[in-house]
């Protein structure tokens, strides 16, 4: 039996050092709701586990003037929900993170883990993509920032280099009349994996959409930013024709697979249906009469 080394550093520098030193054998541990499951079923066998939950920056939520936030990568879903201001300004991001698992899972699961697990079906990721979140990454060569949609490289694969750790996410300042929403399709009512997930963030000025971003999950090897759909919404009053156009753009962006969770035809169609429903919720939250 191989031994596993468990480390719980208090600083990012130590964590990066230890993670880099472990090379391929190292694994970051956030909530562990993916990692422990994978270890138990034998798909992952780390030699070194680096727990990042003792590092202050990674486990805290900070406000930025103008409605922006910096969310630590290892903040649990439950902690996100309990932040009243975050919940008010970014309800879509919070509801997406809160859809992960059950009450028990919520006490542990993190947005950082959701992103770094690399599943195209991760619930918080399309909402973060729609939100325009920027990922803060620290590695042996220092810090860098990158748009969240640039991080996933494919199922289970990330555009991170050896020793790099996700520190957190920056949510940009929010103009008045902005909000967001996330919806997913799952066959059951809970404890399931998104067959399609859709995040929409938008800004309304007098009923006209002045800014929008759309994220789609589980319809391609990575979560997608669907710019074509956003373009269809921007400048419109979110009328039926604009929503239809955005829905068509979402369906067109899909590159899904047929698998045990859904068919190509189904996922493609549902991506459009969810876009319309999600946009309607976001618009309502943004103050549309």
């Amino acid at each position: 039996m191989t031994d596993i080394q468990y480390l719980a550093p208090r600083t990012l520098d130590e964590a990066v050092k230890a993670f880099a030193a472990a090379a391929g054998a190292g694994r970051i541990l956030a909530g562990g709701t993916d990692l422990l499951v994978q270890m138990r079923n034998g798909t992952v066998r780390p030699g070194v586990i680096v727990d990042i939950k003792k590092i202050a920056e990674v486990t805290s939520i900070e406000e930025i003037a103008g409605g922006g936030f910096r969310i630590g990568a290892a903040v649990s879903g439950a902690a996100l929900r309990e932040h009243p201001k975050l919940r008010k300004i970014w309800p879509g991001v919070v509801e997406a993170a809160n859809l992960i698992g059950s009450t028990q899972i919520q006490g542990r699961a993190t947005a950082g883990g959701n992103l770094c697990n690399g599943s195209p079906a991760g619930d918080s990721v399309p909402a973060l993509v729609a939100a325009g979140a920027v990922v803060i990454i620290q590695g042996p060569k220092g810090r860098r920032e990158v748009a969240v949609e640039k991080v996933p490289a494919g199922p289970g694969r990330l555009n991170l280099t050896a020793g790099e750790i996700v520190v957190g996410f920056t949510l940009p300042p929010r103009p008045k009349g902005s909000s967001d929403a996330y919806l997913r399709m799952i066959p059951r009512t809970e404890m399931d994996i998104a067959v399609v997930g859709c995040g929409v963030s938008l800004t309304l000025d007098n009923g006209t959409c002045t800014a929008a971003r759309v994220g789609l999950g589980a319809v391609a090897p990575t979560v997608l930013l669907v710019e074509e759909a956003a373009r269809a919404l921007i400048g419109s009053k979110l009328d039926a024709a604009a929503l239809e156009k955005a829905a068509v753009a979402c369906s067109a962006a899909c590159r899904p697979i047929d698998d045990k969770r859904g068919t190509i035809a189904y996922r493609t169609k549902v991506a459009g249906v969810l876009l319309k429903r999600t946009a309607a919720i976001a618009a309502e939250r943004a103050g549309r009469k």
């Binding site: 066959p187 059951r188 009512t189 404890m191 399931d192 994996i193």
Partner: peptide, 11 residues
Amino acid sequence: FLDYRMPVSSD
């Protein structure tokens, strides 16, 4: 039980 979908109580 994740992908063999028995109803959960909320279903």
